[in-house]
Design a protein around this nucleic acid. Structure first.
Lengths: 341, 341
DNA sequence: AAGCATAGGATTATCGATTGCGCAATATAT
DNA sequence: ATATATTGCGCAATCGATAATCCTATGCTT
């Protein structure tokens, strides 16, 4: 049943040569005659030889595997990024190992350790919402293993990162609401002040300021940004003396909850309250009405992250200077915010 | 910068003992005194020792990695299955390596090869829609590596598989439409006749027959089941002399397209055409109206698949008899099909 | 006190691929 | 024809962890 796996030694034995010659022949080493190479390939085929990457990895000290850590792949943003990484990685003969933290700090720490022990050649990560302590990532850096962060990142780590311009996205989308005639715009932000949410909040505030609209604390609701939070948030906003006429939710799930609350009160979207949100999740296009969002070019984020990894790997000895890539977000306008035709 | 990684030999040197003792001490081998163990753990800590899984994998012939192959993780069904697998696998000290085929046959073949070369201890897979030839999976079997298929599978391979009862799900959901008063129910199925779609079609037909409704070829539309296919499919159905009053789409994206077509024609859902679909994707609950679907217990599918893997690994030498686990699906009734209050 | 068991480790080979160094045989130069 | 290059490949070590086998002091038995 269990076929004995054939090794380069088996091939060598068949041809009366040594394993080292086989190894070189398979790698197309210039010092091996083309006849030998041909013979080696032929018997490799015949014996159904499959290289043992583990052995090679041990010897070479590199596994040709890139570890990817994301909160969950169950969101089109993250899975698209992963796809973008794979696109580039595969052409460079790297495989990826995808791990999910489910936004849990302990799981993130143990995942990093597991990847380190698996001797991945690099790690690309978007950290958990819970993560406040970055020591586990520091360890990666100290090991000399390329670490690239995307979307959610931490400046103090001094590693390369790829992000979209959250500030600009927030600014544009808020400005869009203003252009649609909104005067009293609410904002859903995350309790945990990770960079992306801080930037979105800044974008929101600056757009208001630049357009002569006042900022009101009561219109900014902090939560975990899940659907139920969004619903509760909107229900709360509707108790204000003066209810908002627009909402910019920093998360799509939050926007969904808000829509629910509005429908229950028979308020119209966008006529009574216009809604815009972030991250172009699949479902944003199928809600009623479809949601205006900011597209984050997730695939390109992945491409860029993988490219940085490759550069960094090749830089090696020479010191590599961490770089920051900021992609421009794009507005996707749908009915949830379209008051003017 | 690049910290020299410490090995068990370094620890051994520090304590004036041998590497094998260190190895045994770390694994809590009974033949090592507790003092030595304590000392080893202490200096391991001090030297910041991290085991090299690659070396162990080479020596032991097992990597403690389970390969997972899915069409894409960008669908809650698959990502939930993955999560279910991880849940069980992690408790048994296995890590997972997730790979996506994007429903492409060549990518699937090369992925299988990559996993084999990475010497994974087992493979859990839901194959690509395109896949008709299963030789690459046969190779996995021949290597003696546990192979478990879920959702989409192939009977001829004689490997364990975990599925939900597609027939029953289809039967129940069609019957539900009938109970809601539908007399002329259409069905969207896939062009490629992989088992799950065949079973859903059977369930549909049998439910019709059991309830005295005629089967009509013109009401069954074959496509790739994407959103645009669903839209086109419904547009076609609306040109029939007698249009349908119900639709069972074998895919959620297809149902979405159908809704689009109906809305454009100002037909009401569910009053004019009631809709039900399969697979409880996130977005099905946020459409207008929300879609009635069949929940596939995706997390439990993953649990079961991982459990079979563990059994199979432990069976080893003894011959393992492939098993088939069929989970019962559950109806989730939402407004898209609810005519009676 | 001689004989045997046992605890606690040391030796050494091994997993499969890779590579620096060395060497023989052939080719080229002068 | 002698000296030097070049071609083509073998030798042996190495990557880090592990396990089968072998040793050597103690401890225990009668």
């Amino acid at each position: 049943m269990k076929t004995e796996k054939t090794t380069i030694h088996d091939i060598a034995r068949h041809l009366n040569i040594t394993a080292s010659t086989v190894s070189r022949a398979l790698k197309d080493h210039p010092k091996i005659s083309s006849e030998t190479k041909k013979a080696v390939h032929k018997t490799a085929q015949k014996l159904n030889y499959q290289p043992n990457h583990i052995a090679a990895a041990l010897r070479n000290g590199k596994s040709n595997i890139i570890g990817i850590i994301v909160p969950t792949v169950d969101r089109s943003f993250f899975s698209s990024v992963v796809r973008g990484i794979e696109e580039i990685a595969n052409t460079a003969k790297y495989n990826v190992m995808i791990c999910q933290t489910y936004d849990n700090f302990e799981k993130e720490v143990s995942t990093v350790e597991a990847l380190l022990n698996a001797r991945v050649d690099g790690i690309i990560v978007s950290h958990a919402k819970e993560t406040l302590n970055f020591d586990h990532f520091l360890k990666v850096k100290e090991r000399g293993i390329p670490l690239i962060m995307f979307d959610r990142y931490n400046d103090e780590l001094e590693v390369s990162n790829v992000v979209i311009d959250d500030f600009l996205g927030a600014y544009k989308v808020t400005e869009h609401l203003i252009q649609q005639g909104c005067k009293r715009i609410a904002h859903f932000t995350n309790t945990r002040k990770i960079s992306i949410f801080k930037d979105r909040l800044r974008g929101y505030r600056e757009a208001l300021a630049d357009n002569g609209l006042p900022y009101a604390d009561e219109l900014v609701v902090e939560s975990n940004l899940q659907q139920e939070d969004g619903k509760a948030g909107m229900q709360h906003l509707l108790t204000l003396k003066e209810i908002p006429d627009g909402l910019f939710s920093a998360s799509a799930m939050g926007a969904l909850g808000a829509m629910e609350a509005l429908k229950e009160r028979n308020l119209r979207i966008p006529e009574d309250v216009a809604i815009v949100t972030f991250s172009n999740e699949t479902f944003t296009s199928v809600t009623e009405p479809p949601l205006t969002t900011v597209d984050q070019h997730s695939m390109r984020i992945g491409n860029a992250a993988a490219e940085i990894f490759l550069e960094e790997i090749n830089a090696r000895e020479r010191k590599f200077i961490p770089q920051k890539i900021v992609l421009k977000p794009e507005l996707i306008i749908r009915r949830s915010s379209l008051r003017k035709k």
